[in-house]
Simulated scan of single mutants.
Amino acid sequence: MTMKDKTLKIILFILIVFLIIDMVLIIKLGGFKYITKKVSEMKYTISNKDKHYNDFEDNKALNNKTEDKLIDNEEKLKEENKSSNIKEINTASNNYIDDVSKVLPETLYQWKFYREDHKKIAYLTFDDGPSREATSKILDILAANNIKATFFVLGTSIERNEKADELLKRMYNEGHTIANHGYSHNYSLLYPNGIIDVQAVIEDMNKNTSILKGILGNDFYSRIIRLPGGYYSWKGREELYIKLKELGLYQMDWNALNGDADGKSHGKEQFMNNLINTVGDKDIIFVLMHDTDDKKDTVNGLQEYINFLKSKGFEFRTLK
């Protein structure tokens, strides 16, 4: 017998011995139960690793809610929902009034402005009033077209306007929504260093509410606010969002405008072009305009804006 044959025999013998030992162990430990137990232990270990990894990722996500993270998420939502659809959102009893607690969370807060049925809905909004001359003209045009709008009134404008009581009562009696734009419109007070001072904002809104109650009665209350300069212009939004939710309030920005916010008159034609471009192909629009006497082109162009939106199939609604 050669050395090679002897080596092979030794290896074969060793393998047989190990096989016998394994068989004995399996029999003593319950046969296939032993194998099943080992497989289960392996699965449990793998599952636990996955769970710990997922827990870690979840905790990491919770701890990373910085302002930059919020901004990134907002941009992603805009991109993801550009072509998405929404379902019917009108739940209010009046045929021109929608429930703000349904509409805003399902549209503006998620940047979803498209409907499954492609029904067109426009919410016209006017900031900074009431004004001595413009408000009554705006109300006349809206009445002539049987349109209800949302007026974000300002406390200082009310105090400076001797016609304010009369105009606010007319708005209310004609079915328009009177919403809260705060008292001061003071950026330095409300947003020091560009960061929302939540307490200052709430106090400013409450001060305006008190003025409105003094004119419209103690039963007056609005769930809708608009921050001067808009909600997305400032940092520190998460804390304000939590506070508004706690108070049952809803902030309302816009997704279309005529461009009258900068205080300069660019002419009716430019304002119309701004409106056309920002409306685009959206099914749901929240249109920003201003109710001040220096926005003459807004008043002069309002009927044309309405005609344009009607030609696109929009119906006009308000929120409460």
Rank of each mutant, 00 (worst) to 15 (best):
V153N: 03
E159I: 11
F56C: 06
K102Y: 07
N145K: 01
H118D: 14
T156I: 11
D140I: 04
D117G: 04
E67F: 06
I158Y: 13
E159Y: 15
L77V: 03
K51E: 07
D117A: 02
K102N: 10
S131V: 07
N59Q: 13
N73G: 06
P130L: 02
K112W: 02
N54Q: 11
D50G: 08
P130D: 04
I141D: 02
L142K: 08
A122K: 06
E159L: 12
T36D: 15
K112R: 14
T107C: 01
K65G: 03
N95L: 10
K37E: 12
Y96L: 07
N48F: 02
G31A: 12
K43M: 07
E166D: 09
L154D: 13
K76R: 15
L154G: 08
I147K: 00
I71C: 05
R115M: 03
S101D: 12
H118P: 04
T156G: 10
N90H: 13
I121L: 04
D98K: 06
M42P: 00
R160Y: 09
S136G: 05
E79S: 09
A143S: 11
K69Y: 10
V103H: 03
D127W: 01
I71Q: 08
S101G: 05
L108I: 14
N48T: 04
P105R: 03
Y123C: 06
G155M: 12
I46K: 12
T45Q: 12
G30W: 09
A92C: 15
F113M: 12
A149W: 00
F56K: 07
I71K: 11
D99N: 15
V39K: 02
D68V: 05
W111F: 15
S83G: 11
K119V: 10
N94V: 02
I86Y: 11
D72E: 15
A143D: 02
E74R: 08
N90I: 12
V103M: 02
P105E: 04
D165L: 03
N54V: 05
D99Y: 14
K119N: 13
T135E: 04
A122F: 15
S136F: 03
D55I: 09
Y114W: 09
K163I: 03
N48G: 05
T125E: 05
K65H: 13
N161S: 14
S131K: 01
I141H: 00
T125Y: 06
D165A: 08
T107S: 05
K163W: 08
E159H: 10
I86P: 10
K43G: 00
E79P: 01
F151P: 00
R160W: 11
T36S: 13
D58G: 07
R132I: 07
G129F: 00
T66G: 11
N94W: 06
N85Y: 07
E133Y: 11
N81T: 11
L62N: 14
L124G: 03
I89Q: 12
V103D: 01
K51T: 08
T66S: 14
I89M: 14
S40P: 02
I121S: 08
S131P: 13
Q110F: 05
L104R: 04
T36F: 14
D117H: 05
D117L: 04
K120R: 10
K120T: 12
D98E: 10
Y114E: 13
T156F: 07
